[in-house]
């Protein structure tokens, strides 16, 4: 065992792994944001509330329908995604041509309403949701105890991130999507239903948030505030990665999780702030973010 700056190496490896796990949540959430911003040009401030809805739906499914974690992992994103589609059809489609600010204010207002309703009916102390039995326990890696659930979080997150990146950057469907954001009129001329495609994209982005919410339910406190606590950090992650860049969201999500994890060892008091310090530095050096395109 050797030491790095007075910290035992075993502790350091443990923190790096923990950082990666937290990074999985950042990556999942910023991925949804990046997809929505990249395709719809909407800064989706409802994302945190939709993440919370995913977790709360999992809780409701367990307590009122008797459906456990695994069914919830499929059902909750679909339910919340449909809700997202409703929001897109009723509100968002009217403001695509307006300045970003309108979308931001509208979605921020929606988030406040959703969270307010949640607080009114559920309180803020939180709702109990326990680990699925199949993922209980863990293994000792020598340098740390890795709970099985956390291992599953990393695996699932990597899989979903890669899948999304692949669909958008490497498939025909993704090519249509990207073309539709560049020049909707031309794509429509080829006989593709652009508005429907945009609606479904928003639904997918929202479903990603809900998926992250279900993943978070067994380990984080399920409460109406859980999204607003996370969303600011996730926005910083997206800005660092470059607004609308899929790869940027994924890489900076995992990367910042690790940086935050290291801060928790060396100077825990600053662990809430470090991401914003990184954001300030990145914006000074590369105003469009690490992977962003200059416009």
């Amino acid at each position: 065992m050797f030491e790095v700056f007075g910290i035992p190496s075993t502790a350091l490896f443990g923190q790096l792994l923990i950082g990666l796990i937290n990074g999985s949540f950042y990556a999942l959430l910023s991925l949804g944001l990046a997809v929505i911003f990249g395709m719809l040009n909407i800064i989706n401030f409802t994302h945190g509330a939709q993440y919370m809805l995913g977790a709360v739906t999992a809780y409701l499914l367990l307590n009122y329908a008797g459906l456990g974690y695994w069914p919830a992992l499929v059902i909750a994103p679909i339910v919340v995604g449909l809700l997202g589609i409703l929001i897109e059809r009723v509100f968002l489609r009217w403001i695509y041509r307006l300045d970003h600010l309108y979308g931001l204010l509208l979605t921020f207002g929606l988030a406040l309403i959703i969270e307010g309703i949640g607080r009114n009916y559920l309180g803020t102390a939180g709702l109990p949701y326990t680990l699925p039995d199949s993922l209980r326990g863990g293994r000792n890696l020598g340098f740390m105890f890795l709970p099985n659930y956390r291992a599953w979080v990393i695996a699932a997150s990597l899989l979903v991130c890669f899948g999304t990146w692949f669909i958008i950057e490497r498939t025909r469907l993704g090519a249509y999507l990207r073309a539709a954001t560049e020049n909707p009129a031309l794509v429509r001329a080829f006989g593709i239903n652009v508005p429907r495609m945009i609606t479904l994209t928003y639904g997918f982005g929202v479903a990603l948030a809900a998926f992250a919410g279900v993943m978070a339910a067994p380990i984080y406190n399920v409460s109406p505030n859980m999204g607003s606590e996370l969303i600011i950090v996730v926005f910083a992650v997206v800005v660092i990665g470059g607004m609308g860049s899929i790869l940027g969201a994924i890489v900076s999500g995992f990367g910042l999780g690790v940086i935050e994890g290291l801060t928790k060892v060396f100077y825990p008091e600053a662990s809430n702030t470090v991401i914003f310090v990184v954001m300030a530095i990145v914006l000074l050096v590369r105003p469009a973010g690490l992977f962003g395109r200059r416009t």
């Binding site: 502790a11 443990g14 923190q15 923990i18 950082g19 796990i21 937290n22 740390m144 956390r150 984080y220 406190n221 859980m226 606590e229 996370l230 994890g261 928790k264 060892v265 825990p268």
Partner: peptide
């Protein structure tokens, strides 16, 4: 929200 590194 995340205590895992403090718990470690």
């Amino acid at each position: 929200s995340d205590f895992s590194s403090f718990l470690l």
